[in-house]
Amino acid sequence: MPKIVFDQVSKSYGSVQVLQPLDLELNDSEFTVLVGPSGCGKSTTLRMLAGLETITSGEIYFDGKPIGHLEPKQRDIAMVFQDYALYPHMNIAQNMSFALRLAKVDKSEIDTRVKRVATMLHIDHLLGRKPAELSGGQRQRVAMGRAMVRDAGTFLFDEPLSNLDAKLRAKMRTELAEMRNQIDKNMVYVTHDQVEAMTLGDRIVVMSDGVIQQQGTPEELYKTPRNRFVAGFIGSPTMNFMDGELTEQEGALWVRGDGYLLPVAAEAAARLASHGTREVAIGLRPSSITNVINGGAPVELQIVVSEYLGAQSVLATRCGSNELLVEVASAVPIQHGTTQTFEVNTEEMMIFDRETGLRL
């Protein structure tokens, strides 16, 4: 399992640069997730690693050896695509073993590998069937199995669950997480779904506009985002943002905006002392706003929509001209159209520079 290093790797199509010079290290036996909106450069990064796209500048190294000039088959990589790409005339065993048969691997070794991987993926009872006889989730397992039987040093996944329905996607996430714990390999996974990223990744790399915005563990990205983009992308429901202005009252620092006045926690106020800007944006997780009043910072919210989700309800509310999502326990129903007092946990409030988007 090689250590993979991107050294100032960029990609352009003519005059259009889709990936800015990128530095990234993928550690041995690590599950790394590249996440971001469509067009951010994550799939392009993966395809350059696989050798399916040429590098415009820079180099990729496996254990210190440059591999940018190598053909895909020379890179010891197996890839699972968004499209299953199964051969319809072959049964499942033949689909899974196709690359091994091309490589002239001994038949007994092929059978051993196919059965072992099929058992791990719970498709061992399907080996004699054709792809048309399988469900979408079963076909995706076959596509993963085809990559896994190769026993490559690095596995690449390009949005493999995006074609599945929500329930099946959740089930496959669980199975992928279980599989990750059984296989001691490098895994690089591309997705636009931050829930997949948070569930699967040892390390998440958040990308936007061809630039790495931040990388770290799921907890690091959730609790200490570097900028407004990362804060808004990681977490479900998404973070709320409101423009405001820093102001001092009675020896304390406050943020004033349309429909609210909130105190800044002492630790955050000390950090803000070194910044000259007064125009900021505040970020509040939906779970940081509660309808349980304990003497904290109050805010009046108009309930627009109440979405009952079982144990929790997500409220779409208005605070002045701002729209806020609030996550509360659903034990007490909250009627839309009403205006109620909520409380903000200002210890969890994040403050961003309104112009640069950087967290202050």
Rank of each mutant, 00 (worst) to 15 (best):
M1C: 06
M1T: 04
P2K: 09
P2E: 11
K3E: 15
D7I: 04
Y13G: 09
V16K: 10
P21S: 04
E25Y: 07
L26E: 04
T32Y: 15
L34D: 11
S38M: 00
S38W: 03
G39N: 04
K42G: 06
T45D: 00
T45V: 06
M48N: 02
L49I: 05
L52A: 09
E53F: 00
T54W: 01
I55C: 00
F62V: 10
G64D: 06
G68E: 03
L70Y: 03
Y84W: 11
L86W: 09
M90D: 03
N91I: 05
N95A: 03
M96C: 04
F98H: 10
A99Y: 07
L102V: 13
A103W: 04
D106A: 13
K107R: 14
V117H: 14
G128A: 09
G128V: 01
P131T: 05
A132V: 03
G137Q: 06
M144G: 07
R146I: 03
R150L: 15
A152S: 11
F155R: 02
L156S: 10
E159T: 09
N163A: 15
K167G: 08
T174C: 12
E175V: 03
E175A: 09
E175R: 02
Q182L: 15
Q182K: 14
D184F: 07
K185D: 10
A197V: 01
T199M: 13
M207T: 08
Q213V: 09
Q215Y: 12
T217M: 01
T217F: 00
T224A: 11
N227F: 01
S236V: 04
M242L: 15
G244S: 05
E245Q: 14
T247V: 15
A252Q: 13
V255P: 12
V255N: 00
V255W: 07
Y260M: 12
P263A: 06
A270E: 15
S274Y: 05
T277M: 13
R278A: 12
V280P: 01
P286S: 04
S287Y: 02
I289V: 07
I289K: 06
G296K: 06
G296C: 08
V299W: 08
E300S: 13
Y308L: 13
L315I: 03
T317N: 12
N322E: 14
E323Y: 09
L324V: 07
L324R: 01
L324H: 02
V326P: 05
E327H: 09
V328H: 04
I334H: 02
Q335V: 13
T341A: 03
T346R: 00
E355G: 02
T356Y: 08
L358D: 15
